[in-house]
């Protein structure tokens, strides 16, 4: 009797809601995959079951890779995300280290400013930003987004890293200084190497954010060969005729794979970065 009761409790309190959450989270991806693997004849046949595939075919993937610049977009996205993340990690560390570990006049004010800029959204700044990029003659270059993405990433990375830097005991640094090391040496040889998990979290988070960015890419990159995946897919795979869904879903799925792969390898660090702001406060 008791066994049966807990079994029912488990089913209603755990497995049923868990199944519901999983189905809701995953069905759009299943739908993407099913669509991308069907031929047009099956896809647009109103009698065919929507989620089953009778004649799997790679025709949409082949046309995506052969007829569009999709591979260029993937390469652009990776390059932009890597460069923007690199610049942001460097600048973010330079911002976070003194704020977390040094005492000087203006530090509290600067820390608050960093927190505020972290939450300033792109949609607030895009009009003047478009003008600025235009005047710097950077329109339709990858440099335009490599320069602007760090404005979104640096405050966030600095905020995240400040939390990590504060956890390293002050004594370690003092010991290094007493031993004759300069502050620079104490920072680069003693403190920063201890904060590797923080750098991985910040890096992964920044990398996925840069891969997702849409508004600035939409504004600055209008030529096909400089586009990133999100604007390439929206700008070129959505066409005038009604029969583009197969190729579009193939593009959306393939475009999601790199992000999902990186994420799956570093999910622990990703979650640490995600919850750092909320839980540590």
């Amino acid at each position: 009797m008791v066994g049966e009761l807990t079994w029912r409790k488990r089913l209603l309190g755990l497995w049923a809601p868990l199944a519901l959450f999983s189905v809701v989270a995953l069905f759009p991806f299943t739908w993407m995959a099913a669509t991308s693997l069907k031929t047009n004849a099956e896809l647009y046949d109103p009698k065919a079951m929507p989620l089953t595939i009778r004649h799997p075919s790679l025709v949409h993937y082949i046309s995506l890779l052969q007829e569009t610049n999709f591979l260029t977009w993937i390469a652009n996205t990776m390059l932009v995300a890597a460069v923007a993340t690199g610049i942001s990690l460097l600048l973010g560390t330079m911002l976070a280290y003194p704020l977390a570990r040094m005492r000087f006049r203006g530090a509290p004010l600067l820390a608050i400013t960093v927190a505020v800029t972290y939450l300033v959204p792109q949609s607030l700044l895009f009009v003047p930003m478009a003008d600025l990029i235009g005047r710097l003659k950077l329109g339709n270059t990858l440099s335009a987004v490599m320069l602007t993405y760090p404005t979104l990433l640096v405050p966030f990375i600095a905020w995240l890293l400040m939390g990590y830097f504060k956890t390293v005991p002050k004594e370690l640094e003092e010991q290094a200084l007493i031993d004759g090391a300069s502050r620079w040496r104490a920072m680069t040889r003693v403190i920063l190497p201890l904060c590797m998990p923080g750098f991985i979290s910040a890096g992964i988070f920044a990398f996925t954010l840069a891969q997702n960015e849409f508004l600035y890419a939409l504004l600055f990159l209008s030529r096909s060969d400089v586009r990133t995946v999100p604007i390439g897919v929206v700008g070129e795979l959505i066409r005038g005729d009604a029969f583009y869904w197969g190729q579009l879903m193939a593009g959306a799925l393939l475009g999601s794979v790199p992000v999902a792969l990186i994420y799956s390898f570093f999910v622990k660090y990703y979650v640490a970065g995600l919850t750092a702001g909320a839980v540590k406060g």
Binding site: F21, S22, A25, L26, P28, F29, W31, M32, T208, Q211, N212, F214, V229, P230, I231, V233, V234, I238, L248, M249, G251, A252, L253, G255, S256, V259, A260, Y263, S264, V267, Y270, V271
Partner: peptide, 18 residues
């Protein structure tokens, strides 16, 4: 946990197209 976070990870524009 990793699976349930997927909607948040995947580029918004791509899932929105779906």
């Amino acid at each position: 946990r990793a699976v349930l976070l997927l909607p948040f990870i995947v580029p918004t524009v791509l899932s929105t197209v779906a």
